[in-house]
């Protein structure tokens, strides 16, 4: 049996409001999208699932505006990232949300165990770098697709990956020393 592509399912939703096509899209993308949002929310599963639901509802409402020039997943992750940023602005209206800001990492390094704590390691990265790493390594997106998803220049994606690598390498080396 042929598997419907994302584009074919989107076409059915736009043409006839086909709910079974939308259901297929949700089932297909729910796990990677929820994993992505869990990473952004630093493993707050409940919040990540709420944001994932909101993302799918927004995608459904604006399905007709999906141009099809990019991949559906790129478009979906862009909605998810913006939904996450909006949520953060609502929760912390007076906080300056700097996507490239480093969180405080002082004691985390010493307590992170090397192999199993990828999540904790990624949690040490600034927000946008975390998103870039997830989209690149876990979702297999190209640099160009990541730039489209996060709405940043291509150079920013490359430098985020380079800086993130440098940062993570230091953490792993430090952990080795403490082990």
């Amino acid at each position: 049996m042929a598997i419907d592509s994302d584009a074919a399912l989107v076409a059915r939703i736009v043409a006839t409001d086909d709910r079974s096509a939308f259901e297929l899209l949700v089932r297909r993308h729910q796990s990677p999208l929820r994993n992505f949002l869990r990473r952004l929310t630093k493993n707050d599963a409940a919040l990540a699932d709420d944001l994932a639901q909101e993302t799918f509802l927004k995608a459904y409402r604006s399905m007709a505006s999906f141009a099809g020039t990019a991949k559906f997943s790129t478009w979906l992750y862009r909605i998810a990232y913006n939904t996450f940023l909006n949520d953060q602005r609502t929760r912390f209206p007076h906080a300056e949300l700097d996507e490239s800001q480093h969180p405080s990492v002082t004691n985390e390094i010493e307590s992170a165990s090397t192999e199993s704590d990828l999540e904790r390691l990624l949690g040490l990265l600034p927000l946008r770098q975390r998103a870039v790493f997830d989209l690149h390594y876990k979702k297999g997106m190209t640099h160009q697709e990541i730039a489209q998803t996060l709405d940043v220049p291509l150079g920013t994606v490359k430098s985020d990956l380079a800086r993130g690598h440098e940062s993570l390498r230091k953490h792993v080396t430090t952990q080795k020393r403490f082990a």
Binding site: F22, R27, Q30, D49, Q53, E115
Partner: peptide, 19 residues
């Protein structure tokens, strides 16, 4: 670590809630 596959999250009613 970075290239290790991420866990597949069970749907557990997520899709039904969205629908």
């Amino acid at each position: 670590m970075l290239r290790s596959p991420e866990p597949e999250l069970p749907d557990s009613g997520f899709t039904e809630t969205v629908l």
